[in-house]
Nucleic acid binder design. Structure first.
Lengths: 217, 217
DNA sequence: GTGTATTCTGACCAAATATTCAAGTTTTGT
DNA sequence: ACAAAACTTGAATATTTGGTCAGAATACAC
């Protein structure tokens, strides 16, 4: 979808193509995050990327195509970056790591996080389809893992759905609603330290609610 | 700001005026929530309200004015609807009630909740100013109340800022990202029952993290 | 070096949309 | 009943913006 004209006869995209697409996607992600999905114009992206507008349209037929390419990238990142649960290591270790990784990802890719949230709140079909396709089955795996732990008496039984809904809500709020967080914390910018505190706070809540002794990491 | 022409000589707005503004604000809130802030056109609002577009502009000079009127209404609701902490009654009762009220509000006014989230993620200056003006001092009160409880040994010391950030994150996620929640819960619509479960789940998490014995309400 | 495929880009177009206006209609105060 | 104020609304306007196109420039294969 994102390759407008015929690609170079075989395998690899041309060097130029790959490079420009990368530039455009990165810039678009940034501008989308800053301006909002609908308020962003192709012109803004073009200007910020230092390219003429027509050049953007050479690589991405339409604004919709471009947005979807940006979203695909983000969702891929989301899916890849957070490692799976490892049954062996038990709930405490896994949940702690999971929360840590999610928060770290929000901190390091605030733009991606925000664009994703915007698309989700706007119910972009592309994102909803993606969630339906990949995350539901993902959740099933975590669910069975957690059930195993429950059977082993390593944690209390909890609603896995609600657990994940709330872990996601908490870990993403620091990136998505950073404006609100900054106001409440009375800070100009969120430092690594703030994320560390968030990490501790959220981890504590989650572990306690699962009846797990807190680890001192 | 939101009253374009001279108002009737004194006190009360004319009946017609009040009625039309009410209709327009309600409709606008709904359409904004459905379409997104930027994608919504005055024409859509006009059509859905059954009024000609020019009539909308008679009451609200610009789209921006209209959005701000809608937001003001929502923020007012937000501020009013959730009752203050009552020191006498202790942390368990108050936190339980607070979470319950916030979730109930999300459930009953999903549009308002969503428009607010959209404006917040888009960093609408109007909303940020409002937060700075009212919520920061609001938080101060809660903070000192909680400190009192901590001193009385009724709960463990916690970061009040992070506590509220995360309570808000959790209670609003069910309305704001309902599309995601629906997918994960595999439901067409969120029922009262789902909100009840959310209420229990969130309350449990919060109380445990504050070292408070769970109430059986 | 030559020709073909790819990339670049300024100019242009059509559709969408916020906003204005002026001429009508209704309501209201007295 | 009458005039002033408030309200209504179809039509016009100005601007923004996504998208196109044709020809120029560049890279690439041989």
């Amino acid at each position: 979808m994102s390759d407008s004209p015929k690609r170079p006869k075989n395998q690899l995209k041309s060097h130029i193509r790959a490079q420009n697409q990368e530039l455009i996607l990165c810039t678009a992600e940034r501008v989308f995050a800053r301006q909002g999905l609908a308020k962003t114009t192709t012109q803004m992206i073009a200007d910020e990327a230092g390219l003429p507008k027509a050049n953007i349209h050479y690589y991405y037929r339409s604004k919709k195509d471009l947005l979807e390419a940006v979203l695909e990238r983000i969702l891929q990142l989301w899916l890849d970056s957070v490692s799976q649960f490892n049954v062996e290591l038990g709930p405490c270790h896994n949940l702690t790591r999971y929360i840590s990784e999610k928060l770290e990802q929000s901190r390091l890719n605030p733009n991606a996080s925000k664009v994703f949230a915007m698309a989700l709140i706007g119910e972009e079909p592309f994102v909803l389809d993606y969630l339906r396709r990949y995350f539901v089955e993902e959740l099933q795996k975590e669910k069975s893992t957690i059930n195993t732990w429950v059977e082993q008496g390593l944690m209390k039984p909890v609603s896995v759905e609600h657990l994940f809904i709330n872990i996601w809500a908490m870990t993403q709020t620091y990136a998505d609603f950073d404006a609100q967080v900054k106001i409440l914390l009375q800070k100009e910018t969120l430092e690594e330290e703030d994320f560390m505190q968030a990490k501790q706070f959220v981890t504590r809540m989650v572990l306690l609610s699962c009846g797990i002794e807190e680890a001192r990491t």
